[in-house]
């Protein structure tokens, strides 16, 4: 089959797959397989985003609540696992999902470029005619822009609130203090707001698209696939935007944080 492809009139843009490779690798080398990987890793990352947001909501309960939560994450597994090991296992899974998601996205973009004669990149028009896209919406056309924005945002977010390299005020193990300190600066709050808009747009097309890519397709649920994606995007948008906005509005502030002395004592005790 592969040998004949060179004699065909139309030049293929990719070679025929090598059938000697193990099937998971063969599968990942196909575009449909990469879409599967993008879908599955995308849903994993979506799960992370939602859980991360729910965890952050503890800031509204009390400063101690979120500080305890951060400590509980590091201490996950209790006496069964060395401290932070379980958390690191989860982080590695997350990093792996990111790497695969990005690799699949890049390679699929290149493949689509090769299959378009002149304009190539998604979002640019192939035709001179005036009619615009009919079905493709803003979200689906900008996936290849919102994606890189999210990568940059994650690096910023890690530097800001995990590594603490952005500010001298950073205190390891005091998420509430760090969050309020960071987001009380207007430029930083704006970065968070813009980035989370990109996250929500990415989730809106991504969730629906993932369901399509991994074949979640049943007449009984097809009708709710779009509403579910929209609901999730809206949830993440409202939830995540609330933090910078509430800090700016002064609802979350350092004064409440000063009452959180017990939490600090607790985290110091455990770290030492």
């Amino acid at each position: 089959m592969a040998a004949t492809s060179t004699q065909r009139g139309v030049t293929p843009i990719r070679p025929a797959p090598r059938k000697t490779l193990p099937w998971p690798i063969q599968f990942y080398r196909s575009a449909v397989g990469r879409k599967w990987v993008m879908g599955v890793t995308g849903l994993m990352l979506l799960g992370f985003v939602v859980v991360h947001m729910l965890g952050n909501f503890k800031a509204y309960i009390s400063p101690e609540s979120i500080d305890h939560y951060g400590e509980a994450l590091r201490d996950m597994g209790g006496h069964l696992v060395p401290r932070t090991h379980l958390l690191w296992a989860m982080r590695l899974g997350l990093i792996g999902a990111f790497a695969l998601h990005i690799h699949a996205a890049l390679s699929l973009t290149l493949m689509s470029r090769r299959s378009n004669p002149q304009s190539g990149i998604d979002g640019q028009k192939k035709y001179a005619g005036s009619q615009d896209y009919i079905a493709a919406n803003f979200a689906s056309r900008t996936m290849r822009w919102t994606g890189p924005i999210i990568v940059l945002y994650i690096l910023f977010h890690l530097a800001d609130l995990t590594w603490g390299t952005r500010s001298d005020e950073f205190v390891r193990g005091e998420p509430y203090h760090n969050m309020v300190d960071s987001m009380s600066s207007l430029p930083v709050a704006i970065i968070y707001i813009v980035a989370n808009l990109a996250v929500a747009i990415h989730i809106f097309h991504g969730t629906w698209s993932a369901m399509q890519s991994i074949g979640i397709n049943n007449p009984r649920i097809n009708g709710i696939r779009k509403p579910v994606s929209m609901g999730l995007a809206a949830l993440v948008l409202v939830g995540n935007l609330s933090f910078p906005i509430m800090v700016q509005a002064g609802v979350l502030d350092e004064e409440t944080s000063e009452e959180s002395a017990p939490a600090l004592v607790l985290s110091e005790e455990v770290t030492s």
Binding site: V10, A31, N116
Partner: peptide, 29 residues
């Protein structure tokens, strides 16, 4: 895949299709 690009689930194809073939077929595939 030797000849064509990679689907990103835009849904333009169904809109253009003169026979209105459904996107559900893609998920099934």
């Amino acid at each position: 895949e030797q000849f064509f690009g990679a689907c990103t689930n835009h849904g333009e194809c169904t809109e253009a299709c003169p026979k209105e073939i459904s996107l559900d077929n893609i998920a099934f595939m």
